[in-house]
Nucleic acid binder design. Structure first.
Length: 584
RNA sequence: CGGGAUGUGGCUCAGUCUGGUAGAGCGCUGCGUUCGGGACGCAGAGACCGAGUGUUCAAAUCACUCCAUCCCGACCA
């Protein structure tokens, strides 16, 4: 491609609304433009990078036996009502009516559509397994879109859905996808990690997320420090090991004295209560009230711990969890926020962290203003529905798998694989006849990759003060040929010749043939982040060489012009190798 | 949805407090000089100051309402 005929509107200054590096660079380098909040135009360079990512994923999906289709982005509400998600999916689902007043939504995901499709076609175990995928634009009306392509409302996603005759088959499909994902991210050139994850509103009982490790990641993951153990989980999923003296559930017998009321005026927070009573947060039970699918639920954790809402939601068996409003707290406990406690709480489900069984004689809220109880014993004084792991893991907790230390790192979620089981096939009656002629529900899995997000994640992971540093596998062009011709026709002619030669070699090269000053060309090439830069100037031509620059290391060198093809091939291979990649 | 901030040529911003002729840099057009890390000179084009209402002799500036965008907290690829 000749730059003089191309479309790369670069910006000299950082856009005012871009906070993270990938957003800044993508905008400045002329790869994307914002249309409205969370919705972007993909300009030629950005689209090219996205397409390279998509091509790699497509190859790996096909190799893993998945088959490509394209489903509509507009979906009828009826399908969503069948699975109940029309009510449960929430506001991320953009709903609208057509001219006849019929309800529709823009697809944030496609379980309903694919299940509807497959149940109409598949009747026999002989037709299974099937794995269908698409690479398509999704729409999720995110509460707070941010960070450019990292969290858009409209974004490009690869989603695949597997259908198997039984659990064993489903497990194989899951593993195949897991492996295909790992291969894809390796080929793209990302440093990533697969971690255990919560399955969220997609549903199902087992899932892994693929996290690109980067400081700016929105997710925190807990990783075992022992590589042999390999435990890694999203913070919201990471299991806290049960305490050694696990007494769950608390026995009712106890020798501690009966609980009694203590005056604690104005102590709304754990900190205030502690300094007022001169006690440690560890001596307190924090009672947090939530609305789970509209029902009141109290979550109990130790005063110095953080409750894990995902664990609480799962334990309560709900779809949607929200912290109670002050009005709800008042209605459920008869007390203002800050004085809720489990003792005497009526019509509220009480779920407690397992750790609370390891000790007795707690301070808790008294469900009346300006007062707390002391000497509360959960087994004796409270009707706890269930004790379980309810809190957020901390860096001082042991690895739940091997007991060694864990550490936290930040990650960007670029892929997620789920085992769905029969959740959708049951609610939508996707059945087939097995060998014995018996009707069975298909066992499903679903698998997503954020294609456009990967481009942002790659930049988050690879950049410097000059701009992006693209892995050659997904760089919009793998090389940029810069001609410093000026009025020197010989340089222009030679550059033209080299450009043709590179194209003939199958190199995806951009030829900067513009009549611009050298500084402009160099700076733009660095900003965009082509892995390989080739510069031909008058001096080089005289000496029979062309200059090279490795964008990642900044290392410069020269290639002879008389044996250019050979020399370039070797250099190109070394560049790809430095990324752990292979040009072929 | 709560909290905070910002809307002024294509881009980045000043001007707003203290009302009185719309500014700068970048970019863009033309001419000339330059030409190995975002050149320089000269001459230009380009804005109903986010929208509406109000206050005033007079509003980018004050008041109210709305809209949009960004940042911080509950969702997800």
């Amino acid at each position: 491609m000749k730059l003089s005929r191309y479309y790369i509107p670069t910006l000299k200054e950082d856009p005012a609304d871009a906070e993270v590096v990938s957003h800044r660079v993508l905008t400045r380098a002329g790869m994307i433009r914002k249309l409205t909040s969370g919705i972007y135009v993909y300009l030629p360079l950005g689209l090219k990078a996205i397409n390279k990512v998509a091509d790699i994923i497509r190859e790996e999906m096909n190799a893993a036996g998945a088959v490509e289709i394209t489903m509509p982005s507009v979906q009828p509400a009826d399908l969503w009502r069948e699975t109940g998600r029309w009510d449960y999916y929430g506001k991320e689902l953009l709903r609208f009516k057509d001219r006849h007043g019929r309800d529709y939504c823009l697809g944030p995901t496609h379980e309903e559509v694919i299940t509807d499709l497959v149940r109409g076609e598949i009747r026999s175990y002989k037709q299974l397994p099937v794995n269908l995928y698409q690479i398509q634009t999704k729409f999720r009306d995110e509460v707070r879109p941010r960070f450019g392509l990292m969290r858009g409302r409209e974004f490009i996603m690869k989603d695949a859905y597997s259908f198997d005759a039984d659990e064993t088959g489903a497990e194989k499909s899951y593993q195949d996808m897991y492996d295909a994902y790992a291969r894809s991210f390796e080929r793209i050139g990302l440093v990533f990690r697969a971690v255990q994850a919560d399955s969220g509103p997609i549903g199902g009982d087992f899932s892994h997320e693929f996290m690109v490790l980067a400081e700016t990641g929105e997710d925190t993951i807990a990783v075992c420090t022992d590589p042999k153990c390999g435990y890694a989980a999203n913070l919201e999923k990471a299991v806290v090991a049960a305490p050694l003296n696990n007494l769950c559930p608390c026995p009712p017998e106890t020798t501690i004295p009966a609980f009694e009321l203590v005056d604690t005026p104005g102590t709304h927070t754990v900190e205030e209560l502690c300094s007022f009573l001169k006690i440690e947060p560890k001596a307190i039970i924090k009672t947090l009230l939530f609305s789970v699918d509209g029902q009141p639920v109290a979550g109990l954790v130790r005063g110095d711990r953080e409750i894990n809402e995902v664990k609480l939601r799962n334990m309560a068996g709900g779809n949607d969890i929200e912290l109670a409003t002050p009005e709800q707290v008042k209605a459920w406990t008869n007390a203002p926020v800050g004085f809720a406690g489990p003792v005497g709480l009526k019509d509220v489900r009480i779920l407690a962290d397992q750790e609370l069984c390891a000790d007795q004689g707690w301070y808790t809220g008294a469900n009346q203003g300006d007062a707390h109880f002391k000497s509360v014993h959960l087994g004796r004084d409270v009707k706890v529905e269930k004790f379980a792991d309810l809190r957020v893991i901390t860096e001082s907790d042991p690895c739940p798998k091997c007991g060694k230390a864990i550490e936290f790192t930040k990650g960007i979620e670029v892929g997620h694989v789920f085992k769905l089981g029969t959740k959708y096939s049951k609610s939508m009656s996707a059945t087939f006849l097995d060998k014995d002629g018996k009707e069975q529900h298909m066992v499903m899995g679903c698998y997503g990759i954020g294609v456009s997000r990967i481009v942002a994640a790659a930049i988050e992971q690879n950049n410097d003060e000059h701009g992006a540093v693209f892995p050659p596998s997904i760089a919009p062009f793998e090389a940029c040929l810069i001609a410093l011709a000026g009025k020197d026709a010989a340089v222009a002619d030679k550059a033209e010749e080299l450009y043709a030669e590179l194209k003939a070699m199958g190199v995806d090269v951009l030829y900067d043939d513009r009549d611009e000053r050298p500084g402009v060309k160099f700076n733009e090439a660095d900003l965009i982040g082509y892995p390989m830069q080739l510069t031909l100037g008058g001096k080089g031509l005289k000496n029979g060489v062309i200059e090279t620059k490795d964008r990642k290391t900044g290392e410069r060198g020269e290639l002879p012009l008389d044996n250019f093809a050979e020399a370039f091939k070797a250099w190109r291979e070394s560049i790809w190798k430095s990324w752990g990649l292979d040009p072929d």
